[in-house]
């Protein structure tokens, strides 16, 4: 019992300051970022997925929030490929959470995982749209 409590306490001591720090980053960056969501897309099929992935990577929240944000972006006329890339990157790449991921899972693992997920979010977005075009 004591060992389990001690290990849990160690976990709490590591997690709380990082989570609070990251929340402070998110609340600082998101209000600045949200107003530019619809302005930074170019309409290009090649550049928009990349921008979508970068914006998704810098944003944060549970995946459900990305669907709402993605829906709003579609209404503003942003391409489906950029929105798909944005949603994929939002839910798989946690750039702002990197300090937390590094402290728990290791630097090499965290950096490699995020990089690979960033690249694949763009590739999967392109493949999703190509697949959709086959059936619609």
């Amino acid at each position: 019992m004591n060992t389990a409590l001690f290990k849990t306490w160690q976990n709490i001591k590591t997690t709380i300051p990082i989570v609070v720090g990251i929340l402070m980053i998110i609340n600082l960056v998101n209000p600045l970022l949200v107003q530019y969501y619809t302005r930074i897309f170019t309409g290009s099929y090649f550049i928009d997925p990349l921008i979508g992935a970068i914006v998704g990577k810098l944003s944060f929240g549970v995946p459900v929030v990305s669907y709402v944000a993605g829906g709003e972006m579609l209404k503003q006329g942003i391409s489906l490929i950029a929105v798909t890339s944005f949603i994929l990157s939002w839910s798989t790449v946690y750039f702002v959470m990197l300090p937390l991921e590094i402290s728990y899972l290791g630097k090499r693992f965290a950096v490699l995982r995020n990089l690979i997920n960033f690249v694949t979010s763009i590739i999967i977005a392109i493949l999703t749209i190509l697949t959709l075009k086959l059936f619609v």
Partner: peptide
């Protein structure tokens, strides 16, 4: 200090600087 504590202190400093520059934005965040 641990990475978490360093990050937390850094963010407090950044917030305080923002508070000095733009108080309404500081209150909002």
């Amino acid at each position: 200090l641990s990475v978490g504590i360093k990050l937390f202190i850094l963010m407090i400093v950044i917030y305080l600087v923002i508070g000095l520059v733009n108080y309404s934005f500081f209150v909002k965040i």
